[in-house]
Structure formats: C-alpha cells, structure tokens
Amino acid sequence: MDYTLYRAEDFAADESFIRYYQRTDEEAVAFWENWMRCHPSKIDEIVLAEMMLSKLMGHLPQAAFEAEQARMQAFLQTASSYTPPSSTPKKSIVKMLRPYLVAACGLLIILVTLYIYHKPANNPAELGWTYFKNSPSQRTTIELPDGSTIMLNAGTSIRYAMSAAKDSLQVYLDGEAFFNVSQHANRAFLVHGGDMHVKVLGTTFNMSYYPEVGKSTVALVQGKISVSAKGDHLVELKPNEAASFDQTSASFATGAFNKEEVLGWQQDQLYFTKANFAEIKQRMKRMYNITLINRSTVNNMQYTGHFTNAGFQQVVESICFANGLGYTVSRDTVILKNQ
C-alpha cells in the first residue's frame, strides 16, 4: 500500500492509523511514528486526519484538555513535596491529620476571601475585568473601550478594566501583544507584564511577558512611554528603544531593538536569537501548542533562526538539525532525542 498517496480522509479511514491515533496498538504506534519521520511532507494531511478523528471520536476539546493537564500538573507539584504512602501506618497518619487539614484549608479560604474583600485598589470585582484568551496558532486584534487596539500573538491572554472614574485603563498581559493606544489627555493607560509596568501616552509599542521564563520586554515604535520594573528603574523610552526585565536575576536593561525580529510575528515571521531550550519550549507551546520534551543528552542547546509562515515540523527539524538531534512526534508532543 502506498501511503504517500494518502490524503487526510484515507488516513482517517485506515484501521491501523486509527489504532495508532487511539494508542491501542504498540505496533501501529511505532509504525506510524516512524513513517511520519520519514515523510515530513505529509504532516499537514496527517494533522488534518488527526483533527477529523478527534472530532468524530468525541474527544475532549483542546482547551478543556489543557485545563485538565494544568490540574494534573498542580497535583504533581503538591504531591512532590511528600513521598508516596507506601506502608499502611503512613496512611493512617494522613487520615488522623485529615480533620486538621480540612480546618486549615477552610481557614485559608476565609483569610483569602477577607484579603480580597478588603484589598482597596485593583479589586477585580470593583473594576470589572474583561478577560480575553487567544488560542494557539492564531492572531487576534481586539478593541478596548477607549478606542485603542491590541493585536495579540498566538497563545496570549489579557485582562483589562476601566476604572470607575474612567481616568485610567489597566491591561494585564500574559504573552505578547502589539498596542496601538489612542491619545487621551486625562486618562492613564497602564500595561502590566509581570514585574514590568508601562505607562502610556498615545503610542504604538510591542510588549511581551512570559511568566514561564519570567521575562518582560517592551519595544516602542512611536510616541512616548515610561517603564518601571518592580517599582524601580523608572525610565522614559524614545521611539526605537526597548526595555527588558528578567525576574530571576532582577536585571533591567534598555537599548535599541531589531524591528523585524520584534514586530515580525504580525506578518507570520518567527525569530529565534540565541534561544535556549526553555525559550524554544515556551515559544513552541504558545505558537503551535506543541509540548517539547528534551530527552537528549544536549543540555546547553542554542538556536538562532528565522522562519516565514512555517509549520511546527519545519521549526523542530531546523532546531534539531542545528543541534545534531533527532525527534519523534506524537500528537501534540515532540520529543528531542540523540541521533
């Protein structure tokens, strides 16, 4: 059978491909993973076939699945602080402590509620936050109540609110966005990305905040903005200047920036500049919703490259080639391996 002639509907109707997709047959999984490695040009048809199967099988939609993943991750984080109960006495201790734990949780909830209730400013209920979450692989432009527009990069979410007195508009950023802020004489426009805070007066600028790597960056195209980080380093940026803040090292830096590199995402350009694994992983997740796992022995990988309108496979291939690695794809996970 010549699978290279297959289109998405042929794959989706193929018994062995279905067993691969459902992970019910080791042999089929191994066969198809290997086949895909050998035929990277068929990836678009395969992805389409997998999407059709996902719909037809009534799988949990991606967003809901991600919520479940996050729930699992949260459990792992709390579970890692104690060793698993392997003997019965330990279990009974947990059981003995249970009423106290429940009481402690209850107290915590009460304290948090009180804190939120008494916190004077930035109270979400008071300000009426609007939330917006952009899905991966998609750009969206939204308009704010004051007429300003924000273009959101893939996988970016924001929340914003106008103060009751209508004298300030606040935006919280998680990801990357391009802002075009309309001029208002007596209204402050404030953008927060992690520990970095930007005060705006009628401008266009690009800003990103990636909590997963603890880095905030703002690049000014035109107009004027003032930037502060952790209540410190207050600077005013001129056009073509950028500022960045690294949460882990608490370092703040300003300088010129490369326009294509920083603004290119609006035209489907993807740039990596001396990116390490953490950064590559984070950007693949946001951009393509691909989870990258490094199972190779290369710990200090670095990558510089530029793509136009590229699929994830092309990006992964290029990164692997540069670092002398191989990889396997299984659904939305890419595992990097030694060749």
Binding site: H59, F65, E68, Q69, M72, R331, T333, I335
Partner: peptide, 8 residues
C-alpha cells in the same frame, strides 16, 4: 507523557 498520550 503517559498522561498526554492516553488521556483522549
């Protein structure tokens, strides 16, 4: 990895 591949 087990979680991700078997969840659906």
């Amino acid at each position: 990895e087990i979680y991700n591949s078997y969840y659906q």
